[in-house]
């Protein structure tokens, strides 16, 4: 059982961090980033060709973390691989000792740096969770010539995660889809960035009213400054930085940006701690801040 699963099962408020693989093969920074946070988090997400910008793969970096005794959350987006490749990479992940996997739809190709590429989306994030569950049951999604499920030689075991956008401007379809994700096998959930604890509370109340009982880890995107906050408000659906926080950021001198980022992140976590089971901290490169945020949110 993964450390992440153990921690959530035990009812501890659990932290995860996140690193982004480089565009290239130099692992120095990504490993440094992971090393910087590993002692304060149960597991470290490894993003999968994030925002459709071509990079080193999530599977490879996740395997490298395992090799170094760290625990990854292998993120899988549905954008770039069909069901053959997704299932194959899941088996590969299991062989590398990767247990935590996170099913994500994936930002569209128009958001990235290869806008002429062909989007795949052969499976959606719910079907990918179902595929994971099917693999765990010793079969794959295909059928033999008699129409029977194909049997695996050795079945993998995963701790299966999903995502949700709690502050979407129209949240009901998000909750319905979350229910489907749980039914398809999701065992934990990491959310899109939340900056408004009151909105998150409304969301969590609805989630619990619907008997969605899997652990939910609130998403904390470390806000690096006013520019980034503005950008998110304008360009990232479902992410809302409230006016008061915008003001706070506008009054922060550049040299205090990191201290402010820690302060805001920790404040958000403290406010939402009673509502959920953990926090997923996305430092977007400010990896060394993760331990400070964890400590400050105690």
């Amino acid at each position: 059982m993964s450390k992440l699963q153990q921690s959530l099962d035990a009812g501890h408020f659990t932290f995860t961090g996140e690193v982004g693989p480089p565009k290239g093969v130099d692992l120095t920074h990504v490993i440094e980033g992971a090393e910087a946070m590993k002692d304060k988090v149960a597991a470290i997400n490894v993003t999968d060709i994030q925002t459709a910008v071509m990079r080193l793969g999530s599977l490879a970096v996740s395997a490298k973390l395992v090799e170094r005794g760290m625990e990854p959350v292998f993120q899988m987006v549905c954008r770039d691989r069909n069901r053959l490749a997704l299932q194959s990479d899941l088996l590969s992940a299991a062989v590398f000792g990767i247990e935590n996997v996170l099913s994500i739809t994936g930002d569209h190709i128009v958001k990235g740096d290869h806008r002429e590429a062909k989007p795949v989306y052969d499976l959606d994030s719910v079907q990918l969770l179902k595929a994971m569950t099917t693999l765990e049951g010793g079969a794959d999604m295909g059928k033999d010539f008699k129409g029977r499920p194909n049997k695996l030689e050795g079945a993998p075991k995963f701790f299966k995660g999903c995502v949700v956008t709690p502050c979407a401007d129209f949240v009901e379809p998000q909750i319905l889809k979350l229910e489907k994700k749980v039914a398809a096998g999701a065992q934990f959930c990491q959310t899109q960035a939340v900056y408004d604890p009151a909105a998150f509370e409304t969301f969590m109340n609805e989630v619990r009213r619907r008997n969605i009982t899997i652990p939910i880890m609130v998403g904390i995107v470390v806000v690096k400054g006013l520019g980034m906050a503005k950008y998110m408000n304008e360009n990232v659906p479902g992410v809302v930085v409230p006016e008061a926080m915008m003001k706070e950021l506008s009054e922060t001198p550049k040299e205090s940006a990191k201290a402010k980022a820690v302060e805001i992140s920790a404040r958000l976590i403290r406010a939402m701690k009673p509502m959920c089971q953990g926090a997923h901290i996305m430092p977007l490169g400010w990896d060394s801040l993760v331990p400070k945020i964890v400590d400050a949110s105690a």
């Binding site: 549905c78 739809t105 569209h108 956008t165 401007d169 319905l176 889809k177 899109q192 659906p237």
Partner: peptide
């Protein structure tokens, strides 16, 4: 749906419009 999703929306809609356009 720009992603051809069959089980509900992604998180990319805003004011009822698609993240792609």
């Amino acid at each position: 749906c720009a992603k051809g999703l069959l089980n509900g929306p992604c998180g990319g809609y805003k004011n009822g419009k698609c993240e792609v356009d």
